[in-house]
Amino acid sequence: MSESLIIEATINGFRRSFEVAVHHTLLDVLRDQLGLTGTKECCVVGECGACSVIVDGRPMNSCLMLAVEVDGAEVTTVEGLALGDGHLSPLQGAFLDAGAAQCGFCIPGQLIAAQALLDRIPHPTIDEIHEAMAGNLCRCAGYEQIAKAVQAAAEAANS
């Protein structure tokens, strides 16, 4: 038992080992300790989805997890979505094409939820998209454009 712990996790493809305070959330650690500020803080009750990250293949709210809980896990944040050569991923490109990013504050979480969906269901229906993204609020309400972007990314992967 301890109030801080050295954990090992794969963050955006890189295995790293670092010490975290046990009462810090994954969101706190990503933003304040690892400098990965792409993951956003808004409601901190798991309602808005701005803090979404993918942990071991599933999207989760990093505001509702202690950082120690990802010990041994693989974590993908928005910074980890671009392709290895620095190019945008097809999904990121589709968001630009569709005009899905307006103010942009919710977009990291939207991208994470969408990527997790496409990883699970490569060709989702529009209802599956809306359902999978219902935990990501967008007050610019670019929901239509976001859904179109996800569909376009799915179609692009097909061709």
């Binding site: 709210n61 997890m65 939820a113 997790a116 219902a134 990501n136």
Partner: peptide, 8 residues
């Protein structure tokens, strides 16, 4: 909750 909540 949402997909994110259900994963947890």
């Amino acid at each position: 909750g949402s997909v994110q909540i259900r994963a947890r």
